[in-house]
């Protein structure tokens, strides 16, 4: 029995009158890892932002159901509380706010949403330590301000660390591999892999195939110009790596002509 976590139906969206997402259908079931690959400007990150609830985009058509509920109708913080997490491509700095202080606010806000009591400092520290170990995070990172002065690798690892702490149901990873060296990539991937289970769904957005060597997807979709032009298993990623995006582009051109 498969349970859909996310159902995107005929989604059309854009910004300032410009269409970016031009009709996407995608269903992600519990326990599945989907990857969207595509060239720059194909709309991958826009899709991620729309799912996470960024205000800037207008939805012109279609719907998105999350656990059967209308996702697009929820404020971003409600989505987060309901278990939607996005690892940012460019994590944002919040000067003066410690990572622990930030996560304390986030954890307890989510707990409050579910009618649970707030965790106290001791319980939180236990949770943070356990998850930090998973991602091999330096201890001082938690005492530093959120993303401030973090290296590229630290930022991305911190994103996955936050994901582990917040324990979401649906995770979007927006080009988490960009700017990572191979060791950091491996650490991040291991972090994600330990979180894979039959209740959780992932959408991994990436430009390069190499991340998928470590996070092996169940399904791969190729996105070009706001549409999914091809879907397949993990071997599709390898084929893409081999032949390049021009391959799907040419095929597209051929089909149209």
């Amino acid at each position: 029995m498969t349970t859909p976590i996310l159902e995107i139906r005929n989604l059309h969206a854009g910004i300032e009158g410009m269409d970016i997402i031009k009709g996407i259908d995608l269903t992600i079931n519990a326990g599945e890892v989907h990857s969207i690959m595509g060239p720059n400007g194909s709309g991958k990150s826009t899709l991620a932002q729309i799912l996470a609830g960024r205000d800037a985009y207008e939805i012109s058509e279609g719907e998105v159901l999350y656990n059967g509920k209308d996702l697009l109708d929820m404020d971003p913080n409600v989505r987060a509380c309901e278990g939607v997490f996005m690892a940012f491509q460019y994590p944002v700095e919040i000067p003066g706010v410690k990572m622990t202080q930030f996560l304390k606010a986030a954890v307890n806000s989510i707990r409050e949403h579910h009618g649970k009591e707030a965790l106290d400092a001791v319980e939180l520290m236990g949770l943070f330590k356990e998850k930090a170990k998973l991602l091999d995070l330096p201890n001082d990172l938690m005492k530093r301000a959120v993303n401030e002065g973090f290296s590229g690798g630290e930022k991305k690892r911190a994103e996955i660390f936050q994901m582990a702490v917040l324990d979401p149901t649906f995770c979007v990873l927006d080009e988490t591999d960009s700017g990572l060296d191979i060791d950091a990539l491996r650490t991040v991937a291991e972090g994600v892999n330990t979180m894979r289970n039959d209740k959780r769904g992932f959408l991994v957005i990436t430009h390069y195939q190499r991340l998928l060597d470590y996070i092996v997807p169940d399904h791969v979709h190729v996105m070009v110009d706001g549409k999914i032009v091809r879907s397949g298993g993990k071997e599709l990623a390898l084929e893409l790596e081999d032949k390049g995006y021009s391959w799907v582009d040419e095929k597209l051109a051929g089909a149209a002509g």
Partner: peptide, 15 residues
């Protein structure tokens, strides 16, 4: 920034 706000709300914080 709108960026900072979105980052925080995406983590579950109200505006």
């Amino acid at each position: 920034g709108e960026d900072q706000m979105f980052y925080c709300t995406q983590r579950g914080l109200s505006e």
